[in-house]
Design a protein around this nucleic acid. Structure first.
Lengths: 253, 253
DNA sequence: CGATAACTTGATGTGACTCAACTTAAGTGG
DNA sequence: CCACTTAAGTTGAGTCACATCAAGTTATCG
């Protein structure tokens, strides 16, 4: 069996993979999955390490299994802007291009299901159903990126902070369904203040001030740097400047 | 021949289409093109008219043949943010989704090669090569949107204005290769000040001030509201805060 | 040629960035 | 396990780029 091969997925079969159902792999037929097993392997990266540097030739692609990967763009002025965050089941890497315009960096300790880029590209051409799924995923991603661009551009910092808090609350809600079930209202922010600031298009100082303002207004309670309790969700939504419907759509991306 | 059919492309065959080579259609085989001819038809929209309203069920997709289409997102606060501009050969519409999250609006008078969405979706499933081309186009678009998000977020208004001017100068350069050949240094901005401002994430007032500042510094000359002459390109690049290499990559999107 | 929209210019207020000091948390080695 | 070091986060004061409100000017169109 493949499970004996060193480079194959340690889960033995992709169908046992934690993110299988949510990833594009779910569209693969039985023998296609077999093929994926052969070309994929698990890799881990510790927080802060570069998975793929901006402008460098890219050789691997795959799915995030655990942790958060940040997709960022460093400008000549030195400051980097985070243009995307990748969570478990999200696909990483730049298909069908020599190099990646952005750098992929581990925002937390990360586990990836990695594949050789060329091998996966060949796989996609042989399996139009999976490629179709990939196209749909990328169309969704495109909408999400555009929506986020609209938020970071037309809203105040407070609105962005409130939006992010709400979105992460929905996300961690799903994540913790089984694991000890912390309150629905505890938000886990795995990123550093700097990363959050870079993602929101602001500075750590301004971000901090806004978080403290929300805490003083009893909208949230700061448990520690990475954990918040939502005390007043409807008030948080008011601060976001969005409707609940819109927020839930954004969170589902 | 198809040319007799009312709804077919007036060019008779897609291969005679002005944007054929640059669009995804170029990947279609002979009989596939025949099929596209059957389901496509030309439609025109006058400046300001809505091609597809935000949140409404979308029924048509296709390519922009002439003019500029703006892709925008109206927030509850009233102000709209333009999240994308579509130029000739760009694909419009939201495939594989009930409705479009953004509104498509004619920023200038526009000619489209439109197709029924479901018909084109069926076509794509039957023609993996075209769908493959579509995926590649969407991956490129994703990079472009992210790069633009990084620009509008991390740069000053002046830098954004200079970047846009440069990008449009490269674009109109290509457009006018045959038509009376205006100078390489004449930039045509087909959009209104408000649209440009919405695209750059600023206001018409601030935009105007920056344009006037560039004119006073002899970097550009304002011929009229929609035409500018570039007097000092290297100075314009300095104002953009980007390297020429980066700007040219952005322009090629 | 008059009316309406588009664009420009001016004056003013403020949200957010910058620089800087301080506090708290997280590692590290003896 | 605790002192030590370094990073991460918070708070404060000052400044400035940009939004806003308002008035004027130039295009555009019936």
């Amino acid at each position: 069996m493949n499970s004996a091969v060193g480079v194959s997925c340690p889960c033995g079969k992709c169908v046992n993979c934690a993110v299988y159902n949510r990833s594009v792999c779910a569209a693969a037929s039985a023998d296609a999955v077999e093929q994926l097993n052969r070309i994929s392997h698990t890799r881990t990266f510790s927080r802060g390490s570069i998975i793929q540097a901006q402008g460098e030739a890219s050789d691997i692609v795959g799915n995030v299994v655990e942790g958060v990967v940040k997709l960022s763009n460093a400008s000549i002025s030195g400051n980097e802007h985070i243009v995307g965050l990748l969570f478990p089941s999200d696909f990483f890497g730049r298909l069908f291009s020599e190099e990646s315009q952005f750098s992929y960096e581990a925002a937390t300790d990360v586990t990836l299901c990695a594949m050789n880029k060329l091998a996966f590209e060949r796989f996609l051409v042989d399996h139009p159903k999976v490629e179709h799924e990939m196209l749909k995923a990328k169309l969704d991603e495109l909408d999400a990126v555009r929506e986020w661009a609209a938020i970071t551009n037309g809203h105040t910092t407070m609105q962005r902070v409130a939006t992010l808090l709400y979105v992460f609350s929905r996300r961690s809600k799903n994540q913790h369904l089984e694991s000890g079930a912390p309150s629905d209202f505890v938000v886990h922010m795995p990123l550093s203040r700097r990363d959050i600031a870079d993602y929101l298009g602001t500075t750590p100082e301004t971000l901090s001030r806004n978080i403290q303002t929300l805490a003083r207004a009893k909208v949230i309670r700061i448990m520690n740097a990475k954990h918040f309790e939502l005390l007043n969700v409807s008030e948080l939504i008011k601060h976001s400047g969005e409707t609940r419907t819109d927020l839930d759509r954004i969170a589902s991306h």
